[in-house]
Nucleic acid binder design. Sequence first.
DNA 1: CTTCTTGCAAACCATTTGCATCATT
DNA 2: AATGATGCAAATGGTTTGCAAGAAG
Lengths: 141, 141
Amino acid sequence: MTQAIETFAKYLNSKDLKLTKERKTVLQEIFLHGGHLDVEDLLHSLRKKKKRASRATIYRTLELLVDSGLVRKVDLGHGHSHYEHVLGDAHHEHMVCLKCGKVIEFSDKRIERSLNKLCEKSGFEQCSHHFQIFGYCKDCR
Amino acid sequence: MTQAIETFAKYLNSKDLKLTKERKTVLQEIFLHGGHLDVEDLLHSLRKKKKRASRATIYRTLELLVDSGLVRKVDLGHGHSHYEHVLGDAHHEHMVCLKCGKVIEFSDKRIERSLNKLCEKSGFEQCSHHFQIFGYCKDCR
DNA sequence: CTTCTTGCAAACCATTTGCATCATT
DNA sequence: AATGATGCAAATGGTTTGCAAGAAG
C-alpha cells in the first residue's frame, strides 16, 4: 500500500505530475478493495467514505494508474471497463459466468510459460495480456 | 460459404426469423473478407460493392451471427468491437501491436489444452474465450 | 507564483432503440 | 395477409474534453 503510493509518486514525478489528494484517494480505494471494480463502484465507495473525486478525475487517474503499471484494465464483458490493482507477480486471468455474473480468477503457470515462449519466438515484445473465458459456473450450468 | 449461409438460415429458421437480403449480404461480406473487421469497414465494403445495409441492420445482424456461432466478436483494444468469421476449428487468438496496430493471429494447442482442463477441473462450462496480447511487433520494438 | 488539477457540463462515439414503412414467408 | 425486418433519427451510456476556478510544488 505504502509501496504502491511511493511507486505512483515516483511515476508522477518522472512525468512532472502532482500527487494530489484525489489521486491518492483513488489509488488507496483500488488497493484496499480486493478485486476488480468499475468507475461506478469507485464513485460509490468513495462517497460512502465521505471522500470525493469527480467521475472525470477518476477516469483521468485510472489512466495514469494503468500507465504506471500499478493497475490493470480488464474487460469482463459488461460493456464498460473494470480495473484491478497489480501487486507483484499475482497475475491472473478471468472466467466470467454469463448467468450470475460471477468472476472467477485463475492462473496457470503452463499457459503463462507457453505464452512467453510464443512471444519470444515471434519477436513480439509483450506489454500486457488478458485472457477471458465466458461460460457458466458450476452453480449455473 | 454456401455452408455458412445454410447454417445461418437454419439458425434463423429455428428462431422464426427471416433470411433477408441484408442479412445475407452482411454474412457474405464477413466470410469473403479474411480477417477481423469492424462495423465501419463493413459499411465501406458494402458501399463499394453497391450493396446496402444500414448501420443499425449491420449491428442487428452481427448480434445474430455471433449468437449463431458463425462469427466471433473480438476486442482488439480500439475502443470498439471487431468481428471475424469462425470456420470449423481454426481457432486463434490475437497479438496487437500498440504502435503500428498490426494484429498477429496465433494459436497454441498447449494453451487450448491447459484451458480445457482448467475449466473441466473447476466445473466451468466454457462458451467462448479470448486471449489478447498487447505489445510491440518485431518491426516496432 | 507557476504549472498542473479539479469539477462541471458539454461533447464524443459506439451501440441501441422506437417507429413508420417495407419485405419475406 | 401476417409477422418480421429495415432505415432513419433520436436516445443511451461509457468515456473524454474545454474551461474557469483551485491546489500542489
